[in-house]
Design a protein around this nucleic acid. Structure first.
Lengths: 237, 237
DNA sequence: GATGCAATTATGTCTATACATATTAATCTG
DNA sequence: CAGATTAATATGTATAGACATAATTGCATC
């Protein structure tokens, strides 16, 4: 009659997952509170808390004070995507990285960029375009605007040999950002740069980074056809 | 001379982030150990641990036993992408969800699908195709194979009114999966289904889910032009 | 019945202490 | 000096107890 001893928070996580999978706790169920579970499992409440918190982070449980813990109704799978430097992305595939600077000028950004970069008010931005190559093959075309309000030091940079991204992350730290993945077809200008034909499918990543409330840079990465992002989903166990 | 009191693990996280951003601890630095930091901050070691562990989860710190904690050399930003049910994805936009079943047959999957679904050995699979509509407009074309070895119960399902995904997640729980995002151009068959023209850009999500070592299903979601995935990056603070 | 206040309750977090574990550094040995 | 053994160390985790906080529930009042 001795309850099986769950000593580690991972074993508790496994047991909770087992009960969810076995439909002992179907989606929507409010599961027993931490104190009761701790007694059931023969461990401290903090240990149960650790396990349940991890599952809540993974989107499997939903927790609210006083209301308790329930099994998520819609098991939203959550995928964590690593966004490495393009240099790393290329060298990790065993290819040779090369950077080719294309253009650089100070100008007023177009309206859509200005909306995020300058919060509507007119401002000066640094427009930089460049090509990243993997073993001499075009890999991604970068089209970037840098806010000279937030990052005035960028005005002194040529970005002829060092990619703007690498300079930025080692100089202007950011607090947060947003990212958008989409699919587009290559217009003639981009197709030419990427060494492909117009109409080719382009994987597009648009990213804006912020330092607190001020936008630093917004970039549009146009990946050559064949590019894909792969990652895992599910319990990190 | 009283050290500023950091009472919560979040305030400690903020302070550590501040020191990293202020280049007091540039990338690569091995930061003081938990015990020392706890004394500096005037709190318990467990509190420091909580803060540092969260930053390590976010990819900002790298921790190894005995070796200590260092600021990540390459601040790999990590984006967490929620993968909701298509129904939710559509209703969340304020549109009306509709499901249209297209085909269903039991067959041997093509080689590339068999490789993941049956681990190479020949096997039977259930092939289901369907269209998800958002306020009568085609939203995504689903092309799915279900393993009848892992999920034999699927053979009894028609999938005429209930989407395969919704049936699966409420019937066959999965332990983990992998996911791939890419861009393609619509072939004629898919363009027609999505109500667009051949050559239109299609955002493609390919997903395989597993129950431990056995594959359950592999699905290819072809999103109508204009679709994008948006999420945030940076410190979850 | 509607409304506002208070009691209750479950999670959230902090503390102090202890032990576990991985990994490096030091030391001993052939 | 090479290789194996041992000690030292930083993180990882468990525990019991306490208090904080949010949110619901129920009660009292209008």
């Amino acid at each position: 009659m001795t309850p099986p001893q769950f000593n580690s928070w991972q074993s508790i996580q496994d047991e909770v997952l087992r009960r969810i999978h076995a439909r002992e706790w179907p989606p929507g169920t409010v599961i027993p509170n931490e104190a009761d579970l701790a007694q059931d499992f023969g461990c401290a409440r903090a240990t149960v808390n650790r396990a349940l918190r991890a599952l809540a982070d993974a989107g499997i449980l939903e927790r609210r004070r006083k209301a308790g813990t329930r099994v998520a109704l819609h098991p939203v799978s959550r995928a964590t995507v690593d966004i490495p430097l393009i240099r790393q992305e290329i060298t990790a595939r065993g290819l040779v990285y090369a950077y080719r600077h294309l253009s650089r000028r100070i100008a007023s950004p177009p309206r859509d960029v200005a909306a995020t970069l300058c919060a509507g008010t007119p401002c000066e931005g640094l427009h930089v375009t460049a090509l990243h190559l993997a073993s001499d093959a075009p890999f991604v075309f970068e089209d970037r605007w840098i806010s000279l309000t937030t990052a005035p030091a960028a005005a002194a940079q040529g970005f002829e040999t060092l990619s703007a991204n690498e300079w930025l992350i080692s100089t202007i730290p950011y607090t947060h950002g947003d990212i958008r993945f989409s699919a587009e077809v290559a217009p003639e200008s981009i197709a030419e740069l990427l060494g492909t034909s117009p109409g080719a499918p382009i994987f597009v990543v648009e990213r804006t980074t912020w330092d607190h409330t001020r936008a630093i840079t917004t970039v549009r990465l146009n990946y050559a056809p064949g590019y894909s992002i792969t990652t895992g989903i599910g319990t990190p166990s």
